[in-house]
Design a protein around this nucleic acid. Structure first.
Lengths: 208, 208
DNA sequence: GTCTATAATGCGATAGAC
DNA sequence: GTCTATCGCATTATAGAC
């Protein structure tokens, strides 16, 4: 079979691992648990993946490819900023990413892979932000696209991370702020001018 | 002995656990490893902490108290925003926090404690930001302090998280942006006016 | 308060049948 | 490609000596 549509068991093992990591944390993704969820016997895990590290790496790569694919189509969309935001706010990706960050702490092969992935994501996001800001005539030296990209990612990450432990404080306000910012700068039909839609900017420039 | 200056062994166990979690991830913080680093035998762990969960909870509480104490003195400082930033950018706290977020995924008692702590931190930070913004006459409805607080925290967190896997891309720019923002809004002697110190604001308000 | 010793369980990984 | 069976080891936790 092709590398694209993989054998059932191998694919199911990867998906089971990702699911367990999201639901219960990486420490719960043992060969036995993974095999059980995938509907096979534990020994088969080691047929497809010589070590558990190889399985985790496959999950990283699978998740990374999926996220990158979604990102590439996002930057081609009508409103790249909002599309990227919706990916970053998707806890399916962000929670997995957090688990892998922790896993990378004591598995250096994972860390190296995660780093490569993080850099590719940053490149795509920054390129999209650059495009949008440039189209709006923004001074890119004063507002480096990479900064806007990181602020957006950081905001989304903190919402997802905190949401996982039940914190909701300020989340609606932050999401609304991001929404207001994107509505203001995004290329798509700006909503009719209401006071609340005044140009968002960091406070400090608001003084008279 | 008082609850303040605890017995050597108990305190050392907590510190050893925190250190191992930072250096190698929570999965490495087993009763044996923790005992070895603290210089005692594994069984003593269960004398002080009935289960490993209790040990982890003690670490959460200890770290939380330390962080909150630093925060309370930060908000009383000359430049509360910068003081809070320096705490959030401190990887000693942020890495531990990330480990606990992952740990909380399959230990619900940890999640509950983490939630309480996160909310207290948010309260302190938001109160400090409110004070600063109000002093500058900023419209708090347009720039909710909780939003500014979360943007700051999210920016610091992403820098720490990525730094842990070796990503440095954009970090200097983001830190410089935060620095520029705080220099602009902070109450402390503003640096002589150079072009680079122009009021930071989110792009989109920069159009002519 | 700290130890030795150990029970009970689950882990990663391998050998080899089918 | 999938299984049964198992090895050797680390884990949480307990019992009981000192």
């Amino acid at each position: 079979m092709s590398k694209r549509e993989e054998a059932g068991a191998r694919r199911r093992l990867i998906e089971a691992t990702a699911q367990i990591m999201r639901d219960e944390g990486y420490a719960a993704a043992t060969s036995r648990r993974v095999a059980a969820v995938a509907g096979v016997k534990p020994a088969l895990v080691y047929y497809y993946f010589p070590t558990m590290d190889d399985l985790f790496l496959a999950v990283v790569r699978g998740g990374a490819e999926a996220a990158l694919a979604r990102m590439r189509e996002a930057v081609a969309a009508d409103d790249p900023l909002r599309a990227l935001w919706s990916i970053n706010i998707d806890s399916r990706f962000t929670q997995l990413n957090t688990e892998f960050m922790a896993l990378a702490n004591h598995r250096k092969a994972i860390g190296a892979e995660l780093r490569v992935y993080a850099e590719r994501v940053r490149d795509i996001e920054t390129a999209a932000v650059t495009m949008v800001l440039r189209a709006r005539g923004v001074d890119l030296r004063e507002f480096p696209p990479v900064v806007v990209s990181m602020l957006l990612t950081g905001a989304a990450r903190i919402i997802c991370n905190e949401g996982a432990v039940g914190v909701e404080q300020g989340h609606a306000e932050l999401a609304a702020f991001a929404e207001r910012y994107m509505a203001r700068i995004g290329p798509v039909s700006p909503p009719a001018t209401r006071e609340a839609d005044a140009a968002p900017q960091l406070p400090g420039s608001a003084e008279k």
